[in-house]
């Protein structure tokens, strides 16, 4: 039962408003700080109303951080992760739900376990693999003695090497290889009635045809949800790009670049606490994820209203 009394209504609204303020206040402060000059930003007490320098600060931040190519990089990475993730999640869940093969549960649990090993935890081995993506195979060859055998027989030295550092592939792949999306899809695929699968078989549609003609159209809202989550997740990545990219000029992403603008002990040792510039940059970096959420929201809502699923 949902109770409806004026007092309860008032209380719920108060709580809602409080929550909203807690979320919006920092963003407002960011905006305010981005619109003042150096002096105002650094004088106490904190200013609560916007000043006149917003456009100037945005321009400075943009030029100073060379944001143009960085935004392009971030977009490439985020889009790559979204596409890679959706494809991977969709086909793995498809295999797990609709096919009966040996070791199905084993594979399912192995994927499940990766949930407990996010990128931050396995960052060192992941980095080692990224430095040479073929190193696991090299190790295998070395350990089994094949390298040695080939060398003594033919004089050729096997040295497998595929360096992913400083590349889009290196930035994207480790973020794609996580299990979250697979689970989302699996849950959805499990709700697809058996009869629908059988009807497609009777109509002569093979598995891939069924995936393409039926499952993917039916999972549109899932795709929208996953795309949004993954875009924001990939856009906000800091640690991994920081590690894997040394050639910042070519492959740097905005979030790492942003951290350079934030005054800390290193940068402000002799310089200036440029909080207004950092905040202006923050505003810009926040925009794409917000835009995606707003844009995708329509799909969620349509998915929720559409009841003929």
């Amino acid at each position: 039962m949902i109770e409806r009394t004026p007092w309860l209504n008032l209380a719920t609204h108060l709580i809602l408003i409080l929550g909203l303020v807690m979320i919006l206040l920092p963003i407002w402060l960011t905006f305010v700080a981005a619109s003042h000059d150096l002096q105002t930003v650094n004088t106490a007490p904190v200013e609560f109303w916007p000043g006149p320098y917003l456009l100037d600060n945005l321009r400075t931040a943009w030029v100073e951080s060379d944001f143009g190519p960085k935004f392009v990089n971030s977009l490439i990475v985020a889009t790559g992760v979204v596409i890679g993730k959706i494809t991977l999640a969709c086909i793995t869940a498809f295999a797990l739900v609709f096919f009966n093969f040996r070791g199905r549960m084993l594979i399912f649990w192995m994927i499940f376990i990766t949930l407990m090993l996010p990128l931050e935890i396995r960052i060192v081995p992941t980095y080692a693999v990224a430095a040479n993506a073929l190193s696991p195979f090299q190790t295998l060859l070395d350990v089994t003695g094949i390298t040695w055998a080939v060398q003594t027989l033919s004089g050729l030295q096997i040295a497998l090497e595929w360096n992913l550092l400083n590349s889009y592939t290196g930035l994207i792949l480790p973020l794609v290889a996580t299990a979250t999306g697979t689970f989302l899809y699996r849950q959805f695929f499990l709700t697809v009635p058996d009869e629908l699968v059988e009807a497609a078989r009777m109509d002569g549609a093979g598995p891939l045809r069924f995936l393409w003609d039926t499952l993917i159209p039916l999972s549109k809202t899932n795709i929208a949800a996953l795309a949004t989550i993954m875009f924001v997740y990939a856009w906000n990545q800091y640690l991994w790009p920081l590690l894997v990219v040394t050639d910042r000029a070519a492959y740097g992403v905005v979030v790492v670049q942003l951290s350079d603008l934030v005054p800390d002990n290193l940068t402000t040792g002799g310089g200036t606490p440029n909080w207004h510039i950092a905040m202006a940059a923050t505003l810009m970096v926040m925009l794409p994820p917000i835009a995606i959420v707003i844009f995708m929201q329509r799909w969620f809502v349509r998915g929720l209203i559409n009841t003929d699923k």
Partner: peptide
């Protein structure tokens, strides 16, 4: 063979 199912199994989309 063609089959008619109990719950019709129409493609909803």
């Amino acid at each position: 063979c063609a089959m008619v199912f109990q719950n019709y199994a129409l493609y909803p989309h």
